[in-house]
């Protein structure tokens, strides 16, 4: 009986997503409105993937700042470039492990030549890459950022 119960649990584990989480999967056209919201909030849009080592290394800086600035008009959007086939096996467990309750979106749009330029003409396509914007002001960085660097960039949006 115990064994049957265990089997059922195992079966359930494959059916139910990790921690009951789900994640929004979009193409670039669906993502783009989030890159130009015109209000008095500063948006930090980080392009990353679980397989990208420097992205994973800088993630704690972003999450710490997100938590410290949660009462400010600053919003974080994490755009994952993980392979859609690895959503369940890699992305969801990562989100759970890092307690990323900030907004994570999976960008599934393989023809990246069509949209990299639209995020920023300064972007070659390497990740991590971060776009910080508020209204018409924006700042794009194709590099890892320290917590201090990111904070300086966010502050510069409201100067």
């Amino acid at each position: 009986m115990k064994r049957v119960f265990f089997l059922i649990l195992t079966a359930l584990a494959f059916v139910v997503p990790v921690g009951g989480q789900s994640i929004e999967e979009v193409n670039f056209e669906e993502l783009s409105p989030l890159l130009r919201q015109n209000n008095d909030t500063t948006y930090v849009v980080n392009f990353w993937a679980t397989w990208c080592k420097p992205c994973v290394e800088e993630m704690p800086h972003f999450l710490e700042l997100a938590s410290e600035l949660k009462d400010e008009k600053v919003k974080f959007i994490f755009v994952s470039l993980d392979f859609p086939t690895q959503k369940e096996s890699r992305l969801l467990p990562f989100i759970e492990k890092y307690e990323m309750d900030e907004r994570v979106i999976l960008l599934n749009d393989p023809n990246s030549n069509e949209w990299i330029e639209k995020v920023s003409p300064d972007w070659s396509g390497a990740i991590p890459a971060t776009l910080v914007y508020r209204k018409e002001s924006s700042s794009f960085h194709e590099s890892s950022l320290s917590k201090e660097e990111l904070l300086t960039i966010i502050k510069s949006m409201t100067l």
């Binding site: 080592k53 420097p54 990246s112 030549n113 990299i116 972007w123 070659s124 396509g125 390497a126």
Partner: peptide, 10 residues
């Protein structure tokens, strides 16, 4: 010239 997502060179 085209652009593409890729791993940054360390």
């Amino acid at each position: 010239e085209t652009k593409a997502i890729g791993c940054s060179i360390k």
